[in-house]
Design a protein around this nucleic acid. Structure first.
Lengths: 152, 152
DNA sequence: TACAATACCAAGAAGAAAACTCGGGATTAA
DNA sequence: TTAATCCCGAGTTTTCTTCTTGGTATTGTA
């Protein structure tokens, strides 16, 4: 039940982007350096986020990436689902994947996975990039220099 | 964010056990056959559950496995954490694993993982084997023959 | 006492998935 | 024209999952 680096790196990269909002296109290299992530690997991840409509890219010199929407319209769930696929502890409660089990709506065990899935979705969909930005600002104003550190 | 077969098989095996409570020790083979799980593989999983104090074993002919506690005292969280380790989307919010990040209590990204972890734990710890047994009985009484099917 | 049915144990094998790495091509501001 | 950037596809390494193999130990029963 651990997220892969895709989801974790992706969230950190988007957090980095929202903190640098307004500075024009942010080059991938600078995100990768600040977050200590392999540049080429992050490139693959951000390509997915671009295709999902979460970031826009600007090519050429002085190019980079920008959030494609307002930060309050991008949820952590959007980011993670783009990169990791549907959040589901078992395939039988995944929106996309078909499960091979009988798919009885009353399966007792399936109800467990459904509850877990719903609770994760609820948390992830309730947090936006704007929320993160605000929290980072608050932590910083409290004098906590590490408040906006970029952790795994 | 998918559970491995360890956690999923483990829950199904324990669900199987609680449904056959009172029938004396249940041989692993019969659980494996009903649940369509490799017997030798399930053996490894149930060994973990035995060491965690969730099941007891009876050796020799007519031996098998029994729940070690009352079903209302065994939560799905107990089963899954035994088999999969701590439930945490990232190591920095795992109880057992040390994380290499700065471990700032105010890390904005870490707060996300913490919320996810707490919400999963809350769901899994709120469901006991007795709950599953009751739901299986209810589904059966409603005439739903598949109500207690053993899904992934 | 023999034997069949069980639990218990350790090692390894095959495959899949994760986590990168590499080498280039296309675009654009200066 | 050049340097900085995005874009793309393929390959590699490592780790993890999932399951298999081949046993040994224990115990009820005929």
């Amino acid at each position: 039940m651990k997220l892969s680096t895709k989801g974790r790196y992706g969230v950190r990269a988007m957090f980095d982007l929202v903190l640098h909002q307004g500075d024009g296109p942010i080059p991938l290299r600078s995100i990768a350096e600040r977050q200590d992530i392999s540049e080429h690997y992050l490139e693959q991840l951000i390509a997915v986020l671009r295709k999902a409509g979460i970031v826009n890219s600007v090519r050429g010199a002085h190019g980079g990436y920008l959030l494609a929407k307002d930060p309050q319209e991008i949820t952590i769930g959007d980011i993670i689902r783009s990169l990791e696929g549907p959040i589901a502890p078992a395939d039988c409660v995944s929106d996309e994947l078909k499960d091979e089990c009988g798919n009885s709506p009353d399966c007792v065990v399936k109800m467990i996975w459904k509850k877990v899935k719903d609770s994760i979705d609820e948390v992830l969909d309730s947090i936006t990039l704007e929320d993160l930005r605000q929290e980072a600002i608050n932590a910083q104003q409290k004098g906590n220099r590490h408040g906006y550190m970029y952790h795994i």
